[in-house]
Design a protein around this nucleic acid. Sequence first.
DNA 1: TTAACTTGATACGAACCCGTAACGAACCCG
DNA 2: CGGGTTCGTTACGGGTTCGTATCAAGTTAA
Lengths: 116, 116
Amino acid sequence: MAAMTPMQALDLWRRTTVESVRRDGPDLSARQMALLLSVYLTPPPHTVRGLSADFKVSKPAITRAIDRLEKLDLIRRKADESDRRSILLQRTVAGSVFLSDFAELVSAAVGEIAAQ
Amino acid sequence: MAAMTPMQALDLWRRTTVESVRRDGPDLSARQMALLLSVYLTPPPHTVRGLSADFKVSKPAITRAIDRLEKLDLIRRKADESDRRSILLQRTVAGSVFLSDFAELVSAAVGEIAAQ
DNA sequence: TTAACTTGATACGAACCCGTAACGAACCCG
DNA sequence: CGGGTTCGTTACGGGTTCGTATCAAGTTAA
C-alpha cells in the first residue's frame, strides 16, 4: 500500500462515509466506530476500563456505546469468569458481516480514487 | 496509491478513528462527517434538498446536522441571492483546519500500516 | 392576482447521549 | 473476618437527535 496525498485521504473518507450513509447503515458516532473496530482488530481482552483509558473517555460513555452496539447486535457482552467484576466484549456474526461490508466500501473507494 | 487488503482498510479506519477520539475531537456521526466532507470536497452548490437527496436522508436530519456543524464553526450557512428559499453551505477557516488535521491523521495511519 | 409548488425550518413526543456523582458487587489484603 | 479498592452500571439534569407532520417564505405559472 503506497502513500496517499492528504486530498486523496479525505476523498477516501468522503466516498466511504457517504456510501455508508446512503445504504442506510446505522449512524454510528466516531466513538462507537472506534470501539467496534478495536474489539474486532486488536487483541483481547476488551474491557470497559481498558477502552475508557485507551480512548481517554469516561467509563459511562463506554458503557453507553456498548449498549448501542449490543442493541444493534454488533458486539456482545460476556462475563469474565476469572474476575466477575469485569466484562469481556466479543464479536458477533452480524458485526463481522457489517465490518466485512464496510471494508469492501473502503476498498471500492480506493479503487475509484486510483482510477481517477 | 496502490491497493489495500480489506484488513488493512479496516485497520486504517481504526487507527484514524481511535486517534481522533483520543484527541478529544468532536464526536461526529457518520452523517455529519459525510456532510462536512461533501461540502469541502465536492463542487458547489450545496443545499439542504441536494444533500437530502444525495444521502437519502430526511431534510430535517440534514438541517440538524448543519445546525451541529455550524455550532462547531465547521461550516457556514449563506443565503442564496438568486433563490432566497435556498441556503448555500460554505467552508470556514476552522473547518479547513479540522479537515487538514484529519487528513494528517489518515496519512499517519497509512504510514503505520505500510511500515508493518 | 391567485393558486400551486418548492425550500428550509420548526413543532412534537420519543429516544439517545453527555459528564459527574453515587452505587452494589466483587476482589484484595491485612 | 473487615476495610479499602476496583469493576461496570445507574441516577441525574440537561442537551441532542430521531422521523413525521406542519409551517412561513419564496417562486412559478395560469
